[in-house]
Amino acid sequence: MWVRIQREPFDPGAESNAFFATDGAAGATVTFTGLVRSTPDKPIDALILEHHPTMAKKQIERFATEAMEKFELVDIAVIHRFGEMKVGEVIVQVMAASPHRQAAFDGANYVMDWLKTDAPFWKQEVTSDGAKWVEHRKADDDAKNKWNTETPPKSV
């Protein structure tokens, strides 16, 4: 399990290939890649992501560790960017490997659902009018709550 938080762009395909190559025990891998999008009815030029560096890494490591245990994954890895990114650039990538496919799908999904609402990142959309903070979506809370689990408190 590993988590990387970085400003620099990365090559999503190269990261997937490197992840596949690490272990022979996986019969399935799932890669989720989140991109900066712009649509004709809501065009944006870029996103700026602010984050809480130490807490962001710890929170995502926690969700990844939970996913490893909950779905008995072979491995899981997360890369999340901060700073400014242009339309079409990669924001986040989650890669999960498991003996069979369902666990890899579930593991990647679980980490993304928790990350959206409980990892300390905040997006600003940049348009010709300036930068505007993105509002939290209720749908993201619902997605997280479907796992019907509280993040366990840190063991002391």
């Binding site: 924001i91 990892a119 939290h136």
Partner: peptide
């Protein structure tokens, strides 16, 4: 102690 709005990452 950190204070912040609801998170919007991912």
């Amino acid at each position: 102690i950190a204070f912040f709005p609801p998170m919007t990452g991912g």
